[in-house]
Design a protein around this nucleic acid. Structure first.
Lengths: 200, 200
DNA sequence: ATTCATCAATCGAACGTTCATTCGGTTGCA
DNA sequence: TGCAACCGAATGAACGTTCGATTGATGAAT
C-alpha cells in the first residue's frame, strides 16, 4: 500500500491532481470525495483503498507537494554563486514555483491556515514550505557575518513573508511578475537582511 | 434589519464572537450553524433572521473585523511623529492587533486563502487588512523620496508580508514577541524600504 | 383607558441534501 | 488459489436552511 505511494501509481497521481484542482477552485469545502472520484476517474472505493480517510489523503498530498517544492527551490545553484547570488536565486525560485503551480500555492495557503495544520503539527516539524532548508541557508549567512546578526527566524519571516505576499499580490493582479519587479523586491529584502556593519 | 447590524445587537455580537471562536479552533469546516447557535446561545432561527445564509454571516463578520483592524492600526499616531516613526508605529500596531485578536487573525487567514474571498472580490475592493490606507501611507513615503522609488505594491508586499509572517511565526512559537525582536524586524523592513540615495 | 392589529425578534423541530465512509463484489496477476 | 487493485451502490450522520409558532413592543382606533 505505501510502496505504491512512493512509486506513484497513476491512480494516485490522478487523485492528487484532481484534489489540487478542486481545492484550488472550490476550496477545502466544496471538495467532497465524490467529486474527487469523479474528476480523477478513480472510484471512491479505490481512493479509500489507498487512503484510510479524507484527512489522510489531504495530508499525503501535502507531503507530496512539500517535497516538490523542496526539490525545486534549491535547484540550479551553481558552484560559482556567491552568497548574494544564491540568496536571490532561492528566493526567485520560491516565487516561481508558486506561480507555476498555482494549485499547490492555493492548497498550501489553505492547508497552513486551516486548523488541519495545527492538528498535524508534530508530523510536520520538518521543512514547512521548504523553510528548514531556508532556515539553514539563512543561518549560514548570519554565521558568515553577511547577514544581520539577529535571530534567524526574523530573517526567515522576512524572506518567506515577502515571497508569499508577492505571490498573493501577483495572483490578485496588484503586481506583475516582471524582471524589474522581482529585481526590485530582491533588492528590498537584501537591503533589509544584509549586515550593514560589513562591506560585503 | 440592517439598522441593527450597525448598532450592534447583543445577539449579533454573541453570534460573531462564537463564530470567530469556532472558526479559530475548528476551522471553516468544523463550524456548522448548529454549533454557532449553541455556542452563542442564539437560536438558529434568529441567526437566519439577521443573515440570509451562512455565507452572508461570514461576509458580515469579515467586514466587521476589517473595520476593527482599520480603526486600530492608524490609531495613536502623534503629530510630532516623523515618517520613520509612523512607519514603525503602524507596523507595530498591525502585529499587535493580530496578536491581541488571535481569533480574528485566524479568521482573516482562512478567509483570504479560501475561494470565499475570490467570490466576493468585487465587494472587498477596499481596504484588505487595512491595506489601502497602508498603501496610501507608503505612497506618501515614496512621493517624499523617503522610500525607494518603486511601485508601491512592492513595498506593501514587504510591509504586510513580513508582518503576517511574523505573526505566524509567533503563533507557531518560532519567535517571541519581544521589544528586541520587533525592533530588529522593523529595522530589517526599514532598511529594505528606505531610499538609500537619500540621507533621511 | 382599553382594545386590537401589526410586525420584528425569537425560537427550535423538521426537511431534504450532501457528505465521508463502508462493504460486498469483480477482476487479473503471481 | 490467494490477494491486491478496483469498483460504486448503500448507509447513516451531519449539514444548511425552512417554517409555523410565540412573544412583546408600538400605536391607531375605539
Amino acid at each position: 500500500m505505501n510502496v505504491r505511494l512512493m512509486n506513484f501509481n497513476e491512480k494516485i497521481a490522478a487523485v492528487f491532481a484532481a484534489t489540487l484542482k478542486l481545492i484550488h477552485t472550490n476550496g477545502f469545502h466544496g471538495t467532497p470525495m465524490s467529486k474527487i472520484a469523479q474528476e480523477s476517474d478513480v472510484a471512491i472505493g479505490t481512493i479509500y483503498h489507498y487512503f484510510p480517510s479524507k484527512d489522510d489523503l489531504i495530508f499525503a498530498l501535502f507531503k507530496h507537494c512539500r517535497s516538490l517544492l523542496n526539490d525545486y527551490i534549491f535547484d540550479g545553484i551553481k558552484e560559482d554563486f556567491d552568497y548574494k547570488a544564491s540568496f536571490f536565486h532561492v528566493w526567485r525560485n520560491f516565487v516561481k514555483f508558486y506561480l507555476e503551480n498555482e494549485t499547490v500555492f492555493s492548497f498550501f495557503d489553505q492547508f497552513f491556515s486551516s486548523p488541519y495544520h495545527e492538528k498535524n503539527k508534530a508530523e510536520i516539524q520538518e521543512p514547512i514550505g521548504g523553510q528548514n532548508k531556508v532556515l539553514d541557508f539563512l543561518q549560514e549567512g548570519i554565521d558568515q557575518k553577511i547577514l544581520k546578526q539577529v535571530d534567524v527566524h526574523l530573517l526567515v519571516a522576512s524572506y518567506i513573508g515577502v515571497a508569499l505576499a508577492t505571490v498573493h499580490s501577483i495572483k490578485f493582479k496588484d503586481l506583475k511578475f516582471t524582471e524589474k519587479n522581482m529585481d526590485e523586491l530582491m533588492e528590498i529584502i537584501w537591503d533589509g537582511a544584509v549586515n550593514r556593519n560589513n562591506n560585503n
